[in-house]
């Protein structure tokens, strides 16, 4: 059981001693139960920090934002930045460091172990018809404050799928860590949802995806929320194409556009498949993309498919080590090749 005060004290200590320039954490949002990300720079703000089942955001996104900002203003950081990270978030920070997006010394990781629990899936709670104003961890249960009084629900029932299948609820990479290491507590077997989906035949799978890709509105929320989608120029936009007074209409028309921006099924398919291939071996299953999707496209299935392929065929685990090779820039002599004629 994590004592929230310990986390606040850690953050306050770091800021007071000026060991870090800021702490990225969670605070209570103005909208009732949910947590929201916050960056604090003043030790006095440390008491705003919270830790509860609604802390589902992957905060490593803000490390990427911070690095982008520093590059933009052409400054170098004088001190590391601290971040509150769950097991999955810590893995995504490892992937970012593996790709040399920033160095280990640039970040101070305050690890939070999810222990036997995980974070809440709002949709599961809504399906139960519970409207809560506050949520808290309590052993294997979540305790919600509702208008009818306190309501206690087994965490398993309303926990996000990825947390049920989580293999590493303890942040291995950390500077300070709170909570016990309960690695190996797997509540559901990994890839349960994926296995269930793959039992369908190809025709049924196509029917399913045809419908899903039809619905995408190309808001790019999945791209914006993903800490791994940090490219300056996305293959989808071609924003850096220089358009000057001399650029002819023909040049503009003939430039390579791999994916059009129109939200039609073939374009959406190409976008989503490209997205998931670019995330292969990098996605650590924080599932933020699926959570923010306004039309609820089950992106986790696609991500999981790649993750499982990497794990079973290439023995690759994303976010395992900072110095390790990346999935698509390395190979083994034993890689499968039977499909090649």
């Amino acid at each position: 059981m994590i004592n929230i005060q310990d986390m606040r004290d850690t953050a306050r200590g770091l800021l007071t001693k000026k060991e870090v320039r800021a702490v990225i954490g969670y605070r209570r949002s103005t909208n009732g139960m949910l947590a929201e990300p916050v960056v604090i720079t003043d030790p006095a703000q440390a008491d705003e920090l919270i830790w509860d089942p609604t802390c589902f955001h992957n905060l490593s996104l803000y490390l990427v934002e911070d690095r982008k900002f520093l590059t933009h203003v052409r400054k170098t950081a004088d001190a590391p930045i601290a971040i509150v990270a769950k097991g999955c978030d810590a893995r995504s920070i490892v992937v970012l460091m593996q790709e040399h997006y920033f160095e280990r010394k640039d970040v101070y990781i305050i690890g939070m172990s999810c222990e036997g629990s995980g974070v809440l899936d709002e949709r599961k709670l809504a399906a139960k018809g519970i409207r809560a104003t506050d949520a808290a961890f309590d052993g294997d249960d979540f305790v919600f404050a509702t208008a009818q009084g306190e309501q206690r629900i087994a965490a398993r029932e309303v926990m996000a799928d990825r947390c049920l299948e989580c293999r590493e609820p303890f942040p291995k990479e950390h500077n300070a860590v709170l909570g016990e290491n309960k690695t190996g507590r797997e509540l559901n077997a990994p890839f349960t949802a994926l296995h269930r989906f793959e039992e369908l035949d190809a025709g049924a799978r196509w029917k399913f995806w045809e419908h899903q890709f039809e619905r995408c509105i190309r808001c790019f929320a999945c791209r914006s929320v993903c800490p791994m989608c940090y490219c300056e120029e996305c293959v989808v936009d071609s924003i850096s194409f220089p358009v000057t007074g001399q650029t002819s209409a023909e040049e503009k028309a003939n430039r390579v556009r791999w994916i059009e921006r129109s939200a039609t099924r073939p374009e959406n398919m190409t976008y989503h498949m490209t997205r998931v291939l670019h995330l292969a071996g990098r996605c650590i299953d924080c599932n933020e993309c699926e959570r923010v999707c306004p039309v609820n496209i089950p992106l986790r299935l696609l991500n999981n498919k790649m993750e499982r392929e990497a794990r079973e065929e290439f023995g690759y685990e994303p976010g395992a080590s900072i110095g390790g090779p990346s999935l698509t820039a390395s190979f083994l002599d034993t890689d499968p090749g039977k499909f090649i004629r």
Binding site: E198, A202, G203, A204, R205, W206, K207, F208, W209, E210, M269, M273, V276, L277, A280, L302, K305, M306, E309, A310, E313, F314, L327, T328, A329, F331, D333, D335, P336, G337, F339, I340
Partner: peptide
């Protein structure tokens, strides 16, 4: 060798979404 890995992923993904 690099192609073999990448193409394997593409092939699996195409099959996964239901393309023959």
């Amino acid at each position: 060798f690099l192609a073999r890995r990448k193409i394997h992923l593409v092939k699996e993904l195409l099959g996964f979404v239901g393309i023959e």
